[in-house]
Simulated scan of single mutants.
Amino acid sequence: MSQNAPVSTADLLSITDHTLLAADATAERVDEFLADARRLGVRRVCLSPSVLPVEKHGREIVTVVGFPSGAHAGVVKAFEATHAVACGADEIDMVVNAGLVKAADWAGVRAEIAAVRAAVPAPLILKVIIESASLSDAEIVATCEMARDAGADFVKTSTGFHPAGGASVHAVSLMARTVGPAVGVKASGGIRTAQAVRDMLDAGATRLGLSGTAAILAEWEGAAVPEATDSGY
């Protein structure tokens, strides 16, 4: 296991964004999810912006903008981010515009990320979701470079909703090599086992987006933990 891999449950929880981004999540389901978060002891929860604000109970709040397609105008993403921060978000995960990426409009990609960065000033955290499964290696590298240069704190593999798929070891490794140690890598999308977590950490992930957190913790610890409500993430 690499130096990134946690050696305890507490370490794992410290780098996990416990996630509920299902579009049909009701207020009751959100309440159940937050109760699960308290029981599990996670440090962060990731929720849709429409359900904010929520009681933090000592946790940090992550939310998404331009989600899930990324095909929103940059000014709209920046407004979403400003509103989310006003509603208590500590971290913003923005979806990159895939059309700009596929057109190799790197100035456009960078400008959009920079606009959201301006709406999310430090010490707030900005992550850029690139949908790595839908990109070539060259596109992954260039998009990560634009995110790094625009001041993002993390690059993130996926929304978990793209038909091309979620996180892969190859993408995480390539992203980590591209951005270097100053920028984190969040692996998300389809990570459902403790072994998958270990693989992502070994590849260079420094943050995880998980919906099946309880099941993974149970496998990690080798003990039974009741499963949390599935988020579809």
Rank of each mutant, 00 (worst) to 15 (best):
M94E: 04
L52F: 06
L201H: 08
D199V: 11
T26W: 02
D24H: 08
A114N: 08
R44N: 09
V197I: 09
L135Q: 05
E28V: 06
T178D: 06
V141A: 10
G88D: 04
A164S: 09
T206Q: 11
E227W: 14
D199M: 12
R43Y: 07
P68T: 10
N4I: 09
R44G: 02
A98Q: 12
L34K: 03
V96Y: 00
E139L: 07
I130H: 03
A122K: 14
F161R: 10
G166F: 02
P53V: 03
R43V: 05
A205Q: 00
F33P: 00
R43K: 11
E55D: 14
A203K: 00
E219G: 11
A22S: 15
L201F: 14
R43A: 08
I140E: 09
D11I: 08
S50A: 14
V75F: 14
V42N: 00
G66H: 04
I92T: 03
A223K: 15
V197C: 09
M200D: 01
A35T: 10
V183K: 01
L174W: 04
G108K: 07
G58H: 03
R59M: 13
I130Y: 04
A22N: 14
V225E: 08
E219K: 10
E131R: 01
A115W: 02
T229R: 15
T157N: 08
D202Y: 11
A224K: 12
A152E: 02
L217E: 01
K127S: 03
S69R: 13
M1N: 12
A111P: 10
A119D: 00
A119V: 02
A138H: 10
D93S: 12
V183N: 06
V76T: 15
K56F: 06
P123W: 04
V225N: 06
W106D: 06
T178H: 06
V169D: 06
H72L: 13
V225H: 07
V64P: 01
I129F: 04
F79S: 13
A223C: 14
D17T: 07
P121G: 02
R43G: 06
E91D: 11
R198T: 15
V109M: 07
M94P: 01
M1Y: 09
T26C: 05
P181R: 14
G204K: 03
A81S: 10
D17H: 06
L13T: 00
R39Q: 09
V179Q: 02
G180E: 07
S231Y: 07
T26L: 04
I61A: 02
G108I: 05
G70R: 03
A5P: 12
A10D: 14
A107Y: 11
R110Q: 15
A73V: 15
E32Q: 13
G222Y: 12
F161L: 12
I216E: 00
G166T: 08
D202P: 13
P226T: 11
E80L: 07
G222F: 14
V109D: 03
S48H: 14
G88V: 05
A22R: 14
D230A: 15
V54C: 09
L13H: 03
L34G: 01
K77A: 08
S14Y: 08
G74Q: 11
D199A: 13
G99E: 06
S188C: 15
K186F: 07
H18N: 11
A78E: 03
V169A: 07
S69A: 13
D202N: 14
I61L: 06
E139T: 07
A22Y: 11
F79P: 10
V76F: 13
L135A: 02
A182G: 13
V179A: 02
E227V: 15
